[in-house]
Nucleic acid binder design. Structure first.
Lengths: 212, 212
DNA sequence: TTGTAGAAAATTGTATACAATATGAAAGAG
DNA sequence: CTCTTTCATATTGTATACAATTTTCTACAA
């Protein structure tokens, strides 16, 4: 499938809409509607749906039909647990192979975050938050781990959250916790990094649960 | 997509062949060839390929064409690292919520393993080995974690390995290590469980590297 | 009102056709 | 002999057509 194939175009378009929650969980995706909307044939749409099914972003009903996957309360729990598992594991790997460049990056991201919060750019701050966590995962240089993290609907679940929450206090907590993690990494203090990260993620779950 | 759709049939068939390494990494998958072979139209085959692409079992070339994903030396490293991360994380979760039924299951699997090794059923023993690790993951009751583990090509990579290796000593090591993990779980001895699991997985990587 | 049967519309699953592109083999130039 | 060029073949990307199935609507009876 070439990068500019129509199936790919549909795939990217629908995917974006799902990940940004413009398409709610449970929503039915009708082939012909999307085919008309994007001016392509239904086969391209079907192919896109199949690929999304492979990524577990949609699922097919027993009697046919394609539906956006629902996010249940259990999903929130499972995602948080998985996220903790992946991020703690990644952090552990970072401790075993220290990397100055990585630490510099993380500090830069922390600064960006602070800057944007202080100027009231909460959307941008939220992006920096996502990037902080992604950078930790990327620091492992483990392409499979990175792929899994990115495919776990974690980042965007995160975004969705950030788009809604605007309370100042949460941003301050986030800022402090991020910096504490970086400091602990620099000081080679595994326990503090670990405790902070777990607490940070738990807080995220609390906030997420209020939305479901 | 209905369970008995042709696209699903093709998907299952090709998937099985990839996972059991009957289709080597890098092999080109020609649509018309599979369409003829399974007596379906090319669209069904394309849909199956798209879904497999979503699962990262195949990939599309820049100039078109569908290829089975390759397993490089780095992949082996990454998989081992990811596996350690997932299994260690799962084990940690098991320590936090003890479950008698799970422990019984693990012991049963250990017994099955021993039985089969002693009778020379090395293939069966290998299956028990896989099941042991899967059971640990399943013990977390985290459906997303379970899905990721099963989709990481880990189990079958494992199988491929087991199909080739037949040395008695490896099976004895495996047996001892599995039992040590269960014992440590029963005794609530996290450190021993952790150390044993990591060592167990490292050994697996050593063996795997000899094959690439 | 409620429920049900049946018709009509919508939707999906599948095959085929065809144009566009990629691949590979043969022919010719250096 | 090796490297291009050219052309035939193979393969993919896309659209359309149509049968099968599901869903929705309507009319009618209990």
């Amino acid at each position: 499938m070439k990068e500019d194939s129509l199936a790919n175009k549909v795939y990217l378009e629908v995917r974006k809409k799902i990940l940004s929650s413009q398409l709610a969980g449970g929503a039915r995706l009708v082939e012909s509607a999307w085919a008309d909307k994007l001016a392509v044939s239904r086969v391209a749409v079907r192919e896109a749906f199949m690929r999304l099914a492979g990524e577990s972003l949609v699922e097919f009903g027993e009697k046919g039909g394609c539906f956006v996957k629902k996010m249940t309360v259990e999903d929130v729990r499972d995602i948080r647990e998985l996220r903790e598992l992946l991020e703690v594991g990644a952090l552990k790997i970072l401790f075993s192979k220290k990397n100055k460049e990585l630490i510099d990056d993380l500090e830069l991201i922390c600064n960006d975050f602070s800057d944007m919060v202080s100027k009231g750019y909460y959307g941008g701050a939220c992006e920096a938050d996502v990037r902080f966590h992604e950078r930790i995962i990327e620091g492992t240089c483990n392409s499979r781990l990175i792929a899994i993290y990115k495919n776990s609907n974690i980042p965007l679940f995160h975004m969705k959250l950030g788009a809604i929450l605007g309370q100042m206090e949460d941003y301050l907590d986030t800022e402090q916790e991020h910096r504490a993690i970086v400091d602990a990494l620099k000081a080679n203090d595994w326990n503090r990094a670990y405790e902070t990260l777990v607490h940070h993620l738990d807080r995220g779950e609390q906030e997420a649960l209020e939305l479901v």
